[in-house]
Amino acid sequence: MNLILEEISKQNRRVFKNVFNKHYKELVIYANGYLFDQPSSEDIVQEVFIYLWENANKLEVKRSLKAYLYTMVRNRCINYLKSIKITDNYEFLEFNINLITEQVFDSTSEEDKRIVYHQILKLVDTFPEGMQKVVKLKFLHNYKYSEIADELGISINTVKTQLKRAKLKIAELVTSLLILLQINH
């Protein structure tokens, strides 16, 4: 184990590449369990491997390198979710979506409302499975954040993050659909 870190600290690319190839995919899957966002999961795992490459001589791995890598990925995922929460203007986003739907839907025909509603459902079906579950529990079953987190075995921050991303996508769709519907009338 320490031999691997020693070789990596000597900039042994072959050893590093073997470690990377052995653990990369499973670490991305693990990270995605926290983030439900494939590109961000890949970024975090790549950052972990960059850190390993640059700091191998400073690391003190007590158990196994694999366990150490998993711990680093988990910690970075948690920090990432915390950073999203800090910058999460959830109330502002909620306000904008309500404003769009209330103002524009008031002047929209029932037929157009049905079209928009069905397009939203189609969009939700294209979301990653985890995001779909969160959205459906929140909006179709009216679960609270804590209930969704318990039901799916994820953190409340993950629930909020998934809902934020879903609402952004839905808001974009609704805005463009309503513009198209107004052009057609």
Rank of each mutant, 00 (worst) to 15 (best):
Y68S: 07
Y68R: 08
L69H: 02
L69C: 07
Y70E: 08
Y70H: 07
T71Q: 13
T71K: 14
T71S: 15
M72R: 09
V73K: 00
N75E: 10
R76F: 09
C77S: 03
I78S: 02
I78G: 00
I78C: 01
N79T: 11
L81I: 05
K82T: 08
I86G: 12
I86K: 14
D88Q: 12
N89D: 15
Y90W: 13
E91A: 08
F92S: 12
F92K: 10
L93N: 08
L93E: 05
E94H: 10
F95C: 10
N96Q: 11
I97P: 03
N98D: 15
I100V: 09
T101M: 12
E102W: 12
Q103S: 14
Q103D: 14
V104I: 12
V104T: 10
V104G: 04
D106A: 12
D106T: 12
S107M: 13
T108F: 11
E110W: 10
E111V: 10
E111R: 12
D112N: 14
D112T: 09
D112I: 06
K113E: 02
K113P: 06
K113T: 06
R114W: 08
R114M: 10
I115C: 07
V116W: 02
Y117K: 12
H118F: 12
H118L: 15
H118D: 12
H118T: 11
Q119T: 08
I120Y: 05
I120S: 04
I120K: 05
L121D: 09
K122T: 05
K122D: 06
V124Y: 00
D125N: 14
D125F: 07
D125Q: 13
D125H: 12
P128C: 02
G130W: 00
G130F: 04
Q132D: 02
K133T: 05
V134M: 07
V134S: 02
V135H: 01
V135M: 00
L137K: 03
K138Q: 11
K138P: 01
K138H: 09
F139A: 03
L140N: 11
H141R: 11
H141E: 15
H141Q: 15
Y143W: 03
Y143L: 00
K144W: 13
Y145P: 01
Y145K: 00
S146I: 10
S146R: 08
S146K: 11
E147K: 01
E147H: 00
E147C: 04
I148Q: 00
I148M: 04
I148H: 00
A149T: 03
A149W: 00
A149N: 02
D150M: 06
E151M: 03
L152R: 02
L152P: 01
S155A: 06
I156K: 01
I156E: 03
T158N: 01
V159T: 01
V159F: 01
K160I: 05
K160A: 07
T161R: 06
T161F: 10
T161N: 08
L163I: 08
L163W: 05
K164H: 14
K164Y: 15
K164L: 15
R165P: 05
R165T: 11
R165L: 15
R165A: 11
A166I: 04
A166D: 04
A166L: 07
K167E: 09
A171S: 14
A171Q: 11
L173S: 09
L173P: 06
L173M: 14
V174C: 15
V174H: 04
